[in-house]
């Protein structure tokens, strides 16, 4: 037993009457961070699957990303998503000053830019389908589409969440609950942008070039 590093029992404090634990926001943010870790693993697995299914034979003699990726189009998406993250960040800096209108403007801008991103994505997918590239075309096409659309689904739920937060802040202002959630949402939104970097580089650009 580690008796040597223990205090003298006659003087030891046995109870902590006024202990209040960690503050709520830090505990929640930590848990949310853990969730994001698992979300990152989810994408890592999808990337692994994409890696395995991106050989030339994976496309079963069909079209490959070199045929159907338009880098500049996707770059527009990248810009939209990054601006959205920037807008969100600026909104959050307004929270520090207790500036509700500033936050709202940031959220609205983030939302609109996110919708633009998603709209471009959906248009891209419809375009692909029109050119005969669907999940049913080949293993490679399946991996390409599922990976990008799982990311898009994250964006969709993020947008929904932004709406919910706008309503909550409008109704309740800045409380422990709402600010904590805004922080979690910020982590989520940033992570999706970071993952998009990988999607853009390793799926779109790499696919386009090989």
């Amino acid at each position: 037993m580690s008796a040597h590093d223990s205090p003298d029992p006659s003087k030891a404090v046995l109870w902590d009457t006024h202990y209040h634990g960690h503050d709520v926001i830090s505990t929640r943010s930590f848990g949310y961070f853990l969730y994001l870790l698992s979300d990152g693993m989810l994408f890592a697995t999808l990337f692994a699957a994409y890696g395995v299914l991106s050989y030339s034979h994976s496309y079963f003699n069909g079209q490959t990303p070199a045929d159907f990726v338009h880098p500049w189009y996707t770059f527009t998406q990248t810009v939209a998503l990054f601006l959205s993250v920037l807008a969100y960040g600026m909104g959050m800096s307004a929270v520090k000053k207790g500036n509700k209108a500033g936050l709202m403007n940031g959220l609205i801008a983030a939302f609109v830019l996110g919708v633009i991103f998603l709209g471009l994505d959906i248009h891209d997918m419809m375009d692909l389908a029109a050119h005969g590239v669907t999940v049913q075309t080949s293993g490679g096409a399946s991996a390409f589409i599922v990976l990008t659309q799982v990311h898009a689904a994250h964006i969709f739920f993020g947008l929904l969440w932004i709406l919910v937060m706008m309503a909550q802040v409008a109704a309740k202002g800045f409380t422990t609950d709402t600010v904590g959630r805004l922080l979690s949402l910020r982590m989520f939104w940033h992570l999706q942008a970071i993952i998009w970097v990988f999607v853009f580089v390793f799926v779109y650009l790499w696919g386009y070039m090989s």
Binding site: A49, V52, L53, H57, S58, Y59, F60, V135, Q136, T137, S138, G139, G140, A141, S142, A143, I145, V146
Partner: peptide, 21 residues
């Protein structure tokens, strides 16, 4: 599930799927 519901080819024996994946 994607294979079974959407007809994708992750793990099919043809169409560029990969069983050992």
């Amino acid at each position: 599930a994607c294979d079974r519901y959407l007809g994708s080819h992750f793990f099919t024996a043809g169409f560029g799927g990969n069983l050992m994946l």
